[in-house]
């Protein structure tokens, strides 16, 4: 159903680093789940529209009226790393 290389690709897309020991187990688990959910491939869905939401069909829009933003202290208070004005992140280019 799903092989090791696909699992690694998916993990990379999802930014999950898998331990070597986990890869086999998760490949097996995903395969068995996909095997089960694949039963919907047997249904004839010709002409059936997809449903994204079951109740409301179109959304109300928001009037273009400003509201107060959060204070900077509140914004930064939960950050793992900040320089006092912004959120520090490791360099996107890779390690130093």
């Amino acid at each position: 159903m799903i092989d090791r290389s696909e699992v690694l690709h998916i993990a990379r897309l999802a930014r999950l680093s898998l331990e070597e020991t986990e890869i086999e187990a998760i490949t097996a688990e995903l395969s068995s789940i996909l095997d089960h959910v694949d039963q919907i491939s047997s249904l004839d869905l010709e002409g059936v529209e997809p449903t994204a939401h079951s109740v409301a069909q179109s959304g109300a829009l928001r009037p273009d009226v400003p509201v107060e933003s959060l204070g900077k202290d509140a914004v930064l208070s939960q950050a793992p790393a900040t320089d006092g004005s912004g959120f520090e992140v490791p360099s996107p280019g890779g390690g130093s």
Binding site: A81, S85, G86, F87, V89, P90, S91, S96
Partner: peptide
């Protein structure tokens, strides 16, 4: 200390 990190402004 160089470009070891970046700062994000939202």
């Amino acid at each position: 200390h160089g470009a070891e990190s970046s700062v994000v402004d939202f």
